[in-house]
Amino acid sequence: MTAVMPMLTLNNDTAIPAVGFGVYRNPPARTTVSVETALANGYRLIDTAAAYQNEAEVGSALSQSGIDRAELFITTKLWVDDYGYDSAFRAFDASLAKLGLDSLDLYLLHQPLPSDFDATVAAYQALQTLYEQGRVRAIGVSNFETAQLAELLARTDVVPAVNQIQVHPYFSEPEIRAFNLEHGILTEAWSPIGGVNRYSSDAAGTKDPLQDPVITALAAKYHKTPAQVILRWDIQLGICAIPKSVTPKRIAENIDIFDFALTAAEVSDISALDTGVRGGPDPQDIVRS
């Protein structure tokens, strides 16, 4: 890492690192080592979820790191099977136990549940209570569309600090990002370099932004990798990016993006690559198991 990690400010004045490390699809056996590698390379925001089934391995890496808890920003997510008020508390306690923590920095609803939005609201009300109790520094949502955010805002008291959504050059979600900005909600990007277009079984026919000529030309210009160019684009749009990898070299590269800057025209050129085509399944189709 060649520069100090910039921080973004959430709507409750909590500071969050501009780049974090995600562990989606990380096998438990590889999660501890990958998180240890990320921490050693300067990452302090670690993003996991109950549904990833690797919270315990993340917790192991955190406890072995020797890094002061105050320096870390840990996020996990409540899965739809635990939506509802009382069940959300039980799931929160289970996640904390696996992580080996007394509190979280950010707790998110993992998905909206369109088939039972009342349960979604009840779960978020539980998050509000956890926030009021000081057990969570900030709360938010993931994969919410604008209409769902609007309904949630109308039925609850605490504006989400974060909406974590799929964002990359080929699927940049400008309408949701604009709604988030208007309401003081930070956009956080999962799959920020378009990995979902490579690994998802639903991604047949989608293109890989890492191979786009606009991206590769900028990578050559700045002597950076295509992934670094895309992550720099995320940062310059004010997006908190959560890349993932289990490869030490790529883990180190993905945080080494603070020694160069794209021009405004280059940011616009990358934004113009948006196809509107989602990589992977639509989160709106998620149902309880």
Results as ranks from 00 to 15, higher is better:
residue 127 L to R: 05
residue 18 A to W: 07
residue 277 V to P: 12
residue 122 A to K: 13
residue 92 F to S: 09
residue 235 I to T: 14
residue 74 I to F: 02
residue 22 G to N: 09
residue 233 W to G: 11
residue 276 G to F: 02
residue 230 I to F: 01
residue 94 A to M: 03
residue 49 A to W: 06
residue 225 T to M: 03
residue 278 R to P: 15
residue 142 S to E: 08
residue 12 N to E: 10
residue 282 D to A: 04
residue 93 D to V: 00
residue 226 P to A: 02
residue 137 R to Y: 05
residue 246 V to H: 00
residue 198 R to A: 13
residue 222 Y to R: 01
residue 124 Y to K: 11
residue 137 R to C: 10
residue 197 N to D: 12
residue 94 A to G: 10
residue 74 I to G: 07
residue 114 P to H: 02
residue 109 L to P: 14
residue 278 R to M: 13
residue 263 T to K: 02
residue 17 P to H: 01
residue 271 S to Y: 01
residue 160 P to I: 08
residue 83 Y to G: 13
residue 9 T to M: 07
residue 161 A to G: 15
residue 189 A to W: 03
residue 94 A to C: 00
residue 276 G to V: 10
residue 144 F to N: 10
residue 1 M to R: 05
residue 32 T to A: 15
residue 14 T to A: 13
residue 140 G to Y: 06
residue 114 P to C: 01
residue 127 L to D: 14
residue 241 A to G: 07
residue 4 V to L: 12
residue 93 D to C: 00
residue 11 N to F: 05
residue 95 S to C: 06
residue 54 N to L: 08
residue 277 V to N: 07
residue 168 H to V: 10
residue 273 L to C: 07
residue 249 K to D: 14
residue 26 N to I: 04
residue 204 A to W: 02
residue 265 A to F: 00
residue 78 L to V: 13
residue 39 L to T: 12
residue 267 V to Q: 05
residue 23 V to G: 14
residue 164 Q to C: 10
residue 179 F to H: 09
residue 162 V to R: 00
residue 153 L to S: 09
residue 276 G to W: 01
residue 53 Q to Y: 08
residue 205 G to T: 13
residue 147 A to I: 10
residue 127 L to C: 14
residue 200 S to E: 06
residue 161 A to E: 12
residue 261 A to T: 13
residue 89 F to I: 13
